[in-house]
Simulated assay, not measured.
Amino acid sequence: MATKDVNVAPARRGSSLRLPTEVNILLVLFGIALVFEILGWIFQGQSFLGNVARLKIMILQVSVIGIIAVGVTQVIISGGIDLSSGSIVGAVAMVSMSFAQSSDYARAVYPALTDMPVIVPVAIGLVVGAIAGFINGWLIAYTKIPPFIATLGMMVAARGFAKWYTKGQPISFPTKSFAFFGSGMMPVIIFLIVAAIFYVAMKYTRYGKFTYAIGANQQAARVSGINVEKQLVRIYVVAGTLSALAAIVVAARGQTAQAGMGLMYELDAIAMTVIGGTSLQGGRGSILGTAIGMVIFGVIISGFTFLRLDAYYQEMMKGAIIVAAVVADTYRQKRRTPKN
């Protein structure tokens, strides 16, 4: 009896439908929030998620670092790393606040003294951040210094500049127009605008496509006609400028600037980025994932504070979170790699 040849696709292991990375991260966020909600009722006798004021403070705190994380995401997608963002925050905060300082208290001595337009301290701060990013990018692209070393050097240099600029003295009393950038929910609004702009840029423009291509395979990107060196400089300039923007927001919010501002911000930004699914090996990640990772990071830290855990436990957990996220990324990479 003749048999018909029937083409049947062989079943493959692990061929079940996979959810997008951002959806998986969002599910993790819901799970972590639920855990803290349950622990809150058990140990504190109150709701973690039901306190709107606590959630508002949490979002305000992480949104500033979230601005930095948007730039760090692009750096990591390109296959690099940026350890200088926190120090750039300190340097830019000092410079911007020095030009944004209100002259009200000094007019008794200098009656003709007037306040500068708010565009001056903002523009100068952004330029300082862009210059720092340009130096990082130029060193990495044209001298072939590893990103870790180049940005580590900038981290030390920028912190030293912040201390030298005013001989370590804090600067306070900004003008009302400058303080506006940190008032109310402005930090959150600024973060959302920045995230939206670079979500579109990374997904729909040549800038984003080139960044992903460089991170996936730099040599292949160069062969395909991408000017890798110029693109790397652009990426680090963007990262430096966003760190400067975060510095302006945090200085305006606290209405003071100190050389130590932004300490460890770079590690928090990297943690948010990696938690959000960006691969430290480059070529994969998204701004949306980083935004969700930012909220996860904030929920965890706020949750520990809510449960009244000591600050040093929180620091240890930050390190554990980064390591866990890297391990998860390594596992995902192995699953994606086809077996011979």
Rank of each mutant, 00 (worst) to 15 (best):
M185V: 08
I145K: 01
Q101V: 08
I145Q: 00
A150S: 12
G90V: 05
S177F: 06
I145A: 00
D115I: 04
F180S: 03
F134P: 02
V109R: 08
L152T: 13
A93F: 07
V95I: 15
I119Q: 14
S183M: 01
S172K: 13
M94E: 06
A179E: 03
V128I: 15
R107S: 02
P146L: 00
P174L: 06
Q101E: 11
Y142W: 08
V109E: 13
S96W: 08
W138S: 06
K163W: 13
F181W: 05
W164R: 11
K144T: 01
G184K: 00
V127A: 15
V95Y: 08
A150Y: 08
V89G: 05
V118H: 06
P170C: 10
F173G: 05
P121Y: 09
P170Q: 08
A100L: 08
I124A: 10
W138I: 09
P170H: 10
T166L: 14
L139H: 02
L139G: 06
Y105L: 01
A162T: 10
R159K: 15
T114D: 06
F173R: 11
T166N: 10
F134V: 06
G168R: 12
M154P: 04
I88S: 05
G182R: 02
P121A: 13
A132S: 04
A106E: 11
I135A: 07
R159N: 12
I124Y: 13
G153F: 12
V128T: 06
A130L: 04
S87W: 07
G182F: 00
F180L: 05
V122I: 15
V109D: 14
T143G: 00
G129Q: 06
F134Q: 07
G137C: 01
S177H: 08
Y142H: 11
S102H: 08
L113W: 12
T143A: 06
A141G: 00
S177P: 02
I171W: 04
I124P: 07
I171G: 05
F173L: 12
A112D: 12
M186R: 04
F178Y: 10
V128N: 05
S87A: 14
V92W: 09
I135P: 05
P117I: 12
I124M: 11
G160M: 15
V92F: 09
V122S: 07
I119R: 07
N136Y: 04
A157F: 15
L113R: 10
A106F: 13
K176I: 04
P170W: 12
M154I: 11
V92L: 09
K176H: 07
T166H: 12
V156Y: 14
Y165T: 08
I119Y: 13
R107D: 04
P187I: 00
I135L: 13
Y165A: 04
A132T: 07
G182S: 03
Y110Q: 14
S98V: 01
M94N: 02
I88M: 10
M97W: 03
G160N: 14
G133H: 01
K163F: 15
M94L: 11
L126Q: 03
Y110M: 14
Y110P: 09
Y165K: 09
I149M: 14
T151V: 03
V122Y: 08
A179H: 02
G125I: 12
P121K: 12
R107A: 05
Y110H: 07
A157Y: 13
Y165E: 13
T166F: 12
Q169T: 14
M186H: 04
S98Y: 06
V128E: 01
D115L: 04
F181G: 02
